[in-house]
Amino acid sequence: MRVLYLYAGSRKAFYEKWERGEVPDTQLLGLNYMERFGIDAKFIEWRLPEFLRRISFNLVHLPYIFAIKKYDIVFICAGLPLVFIAKKILHWKNPRFVIYNTYLANALRRHPRGVLHWFNKKAIEGLDVIVCTARTQMPPLIEAGIASEKIKFVPIGIDARKFVGARGTDRVFQSDYILSVGRDLGRDYKTLFDAVRDLPVKVIVATKTEAIAGLIVPPNVEVRFNVPYEEMPALYHNALFVVTPLKSTNNSIGSETSGQYGYLEPMAACKAVIATDKPVVRDYIENEKTGLLVQPENPAALRAAIERLLRDKQFGNQLGNTAQVYVLVHFTSERWARSLSEIFKSLM
Rank of each mutant, 00 (worst) to 15 (best):
P49F: 06
I124L: 05
Y100C: 01
W46T: 07
A41Y: 06
C132V: 15
I39Y: 04
Y64D: 05
G126M: 09
K152N: 12
L90D: 08
P81V: 12
K42I: 03
E143F: 07
H111Y: 11
T136M: 11
A67I: 06
I124G: 04
F75H: 11
R113S: 07
W92A: 02
D159C: 07
G126K: 09
R109F: 06
E149W: 07
H91F: 14
E50L: 13
L82Y: 08
A160G: 10
K69G: 13
R167W: 11
K70Q: 15
G126S: 09
R36F: 06
P112Q: 10
I158E: 03
R110Y: 07
L90C: 12
D128P: 07
I146Y: 15
Y71W: 14
R54E: 10
R47P: 10
K150F: 13
N101V: 00
Y100P: 01
E45S: 08
F84D: 03
I85L: 10
E45D: 10
D40Q: 15
D159K: 04
D40N: 15
P140H: 11
L82T: 13
F84A: 02
H117W: 12
T133A: 02
V129Y: 13
M138R: 12
L52H: 05
A144M: 03
V74D: 03
I73R: 00
N58C: 01
I124S: 02
T133G: 00
K42F: 01
L48D: 02
V60M: 09
K122L: 08
K150Q: 13
I44V: 14
A78D: 07
V154R: 05
P140M: 03
K150N: 12
A105C: 01
V154N: 09
K88H: 01
K122A: 09
T102Y: 01
L104F: 08
K88N: 12
F51Q: 11
I76V: 13
H91K: 15
E149F: 08
E50N: 08
D159G: 08
V83F: 02
I65F: 15
V74E: 01
H91Y: 15
V74G: 06
M138A: 03
R161Y: 07
H91G: 03
P140F: 09
I85H: 00
I73A: 07
F84W: 09
V115L: 15
C77K: 02
